[in-house]
């Protein structure tokens, strides 16, 4: 798993609530069997004026200049500021893959949908939940100040604003450690193989029908 300890970057504001994973990466791009290459299609329907398909040369498509991603002041942004329930809908991990591929490593919103939130951590992306007032204030500051950057210190669970103000954020300890150390979660679980086997032999007694191989149904 990808590590993240400290991060600083330009903030891109996406002023919409309930941004779903279909909007983050539309379905036609889910046909890929790879984990990479989704960046040019992040927010595809909002970002381009003409429709796109996998295999197209996306650099030749017409850009929607009204969309934040296409505005010069947000070029190179790596921190996404969003609204409540970001990442709702489909469980597609292609959504964090697309964000990562486009350079985003930190997401800030007043809430995230659960499956998306969980998927972010598996890919070295830190989603930060802040209360609505602070999110509102950040939106105002980002809009007022071109080139606005935030610095994140994961170990301290702090965001540092350009004026030096520090905002604390909450995070589950396990998720924090996994991200700080770039832990291989499967490897960690396999260290408990004996516990898993012990569980299975107990369970086999209780619910034997779940242990009959279905064979060729």
């Amino acid at each position: 798993m990808k590590k993240l300890t400290e991060w600083q970057g330009i903030v891109m504001p996406l002023d919409r609530a309930n941004v779903d994973t279909d909007a983050i990466i539309p379905k036609q791009y889910l046909k890929s069997i790879k984990r990479t290459g989704f960046g040019p299609n992040l927010f595809d329907d909002w970002r381009y004026l003409d429709p796109g398909e996998p295999g197209d040369d996306h650099s030749k498509r017409r850009l929607n200049t009204e969309f934040v991603m296409n505005q010069s002041r947000y070029q190179g942004a790596t921190v996404l500021l969003a609204r409540e329930n970001f990442g709702c809908g489909s469980s597609r991990e292609h959504a964090p893959w697309a964000l990562l591929d486009a350079g985003f490593r930190v997401l800030i919103a007043s809430s995230f949908a659960e499956i998306f939130y969980n998927n972010c951590f598996k890919n070295g992306i830190l989603p930060i939940v802040l209360n609505e007032e602070i999110v509102e204030q950040l939106f105002a500051e980002v809009l007022a100040d071109p080139g606005y950057e935030l610095a994140v210190d994961l170990a301290k669970q702090q965001i540092c604003k350009p004026d030096g103000e520090v905002v604390n954020f909450q995070l589950e300890e396990f998720r924090k450690q996994a991200l700080l150390e770039g832990l291989d979660e499967i490897g960690l679980t396999l260290q408990k193989a004996d516990l898993i086997r012990a569980y299975e032999s107990k369970r086999r007694q209780q619910v034997p029908w779940l242990f009959n191989a279905p064979g060729d149904i």
């Binding site: 984990r35 469980s91 991990e93 969980n118």
Partner: peptide
């Protein structure tokens, strides 16, 4: 029953378990 991401699909394939709260 619930949905999972692809990293967790791999986790379940490899370990028959999920890390959950």
């Amino acid at each position: 029953a619930h949905g999972i991401g692809t990293s967790e699909v791999e986790h379940v394939l490899a370990t028959q378990c999920l890390i959950q709260k």
